[in-house]
Amino acid sequence: MSWGILLGGGRSSRMGSDKLELDREGRSVATWAVAALTAVADKVVFVSPERPGLDSGALLYALEDPPFGGPVAGLVAGLELVPVDVGDVYVLAGDLAWPDAVVRRLARAPLGPDGVALVDAEGWTQYLAARYRTAALRQKLAELEGERDVSVRRALHGLRLATVPVPDAVVGDLDTPEQAADLGFTTPDAHK
């Protein structure tokens, strides 16, 4: 049994608007990501305020504490809803441009002792494009002893992950209007 955690609690300050509402082919970034995860996971915890139009029996919502507390706080909040008997959990940043490509690679990859993560062309482990053994992720986050205002890299460093090298385009994210436009995304109001 697999679950997914989709992290979508950021402020989108560099984008200037909610990047999870950016549109490509009539579907929002959030819709693309939820669809990618529900293809491989029994349930998906979306760490975000509820979003109209994403109705799915497989979708649950969580909010990080504190609000806008960052991805580690989001991971903690999402993992709280994942039952302890779930074997593995996909973890995706909500602003990935190609979540379906990320999930396909993670689904095919063998897990290491603690999971598997994609690695970009520069050799950086993409901890928010990964599939973790749930118990290992839970243990690693428990070691933070309530400290949540740390980088994901610092929080999850030391997990024994298999890695899958991918082109940068696969793990590209949407941080600025220029990146969004280059990848074929538009703001929802651009269609009005």
Rank of each mutant, 00 (worst) to 15 (best):
A129Q: 06
L183R: 15
V86H: 04
V171A: 03
G184V: 10
A130M: 08
V82G: 01
E80R: 15
A162W: 06
P165S: 09
V102A: 13
A181M: 01
L96H: 14
A180Y: 00
S48V: 01
L128P: 03
D88T: 14
A77I: 02
A107H: 14
L159I: 13
S151E: 12
G115W: 10
A169L: 08
T176K: 03
A180F: 00
L81F: 03
A155H: 06
D88H: 15
D173N: 12
G146C: 14
R138H: 13
W124I: 01
P113G: 11
R51H: 05
R51T: 07
L54Y: 05
P113M: 13
A155S: 03
A109M: 14
V150Q: 12
T187Y: 01
D120Y: 00
V102C: 13
R154W: 14
G115N: 13
V84H: 15
Y61R: 07
L75E: 10
G115R: 05
P71G: 14
E122P: 00
S48R: 09
A190S: 15
L141K: 09
V171L: 00
Y61S: 07
D175M: 06
G69M: 09
G115H: 12
W98Y: 15
D120C: 01
V103A: 01
A109N: 11
A190M: 02
T187D: 03
L137Q: 08
F185I: 04
T134D: 06
E178I: 11
K140S: 15
P188C: 07
A101Q: 14
V164E: 13
G146A: 15
L183N: 13
R51G: 00
A107Q: 13
A155M: 05
P165V: 08
D120G: 01
D120A: 02
L63M: 08
E143V: 10
R148M: 03
A135P: 05
L63S: 08
W124V: 12
G115T: 10
T163Q: 15
P49F: 02
S56R: 05
R133H: 11
Q179P: 02
S151K: 12
A77M: 06
L159M: 14
P188D: 08
Y127M: 11
G158K: 09
A129D: 06
G158L: 10
G184A: 13
W124D: 15
P67Q: 10
E122K: 12
S48P: 02
A101V: 08
L183T: 12
K140P: 01
G158E: 05
P52M: 02
G57I: 01
L54K: 02
D189N: 14
P67D: 11
V116A: 09
A117G: 03
P66V: 11
E64L: 03
A73V: 06
L118P: 03
V102H: 00
L183K: 15
D55T: 12
E50G: 05
V166H: 09
L106S: 06
V171P: 00
R131E: 12
D114V: 10
P188Q: 09
V47Q: 04
L106G: 04
L59A: 04
P71K: 14
Y61L: 06
E147R: 15
A58M: 08
L63A: 07
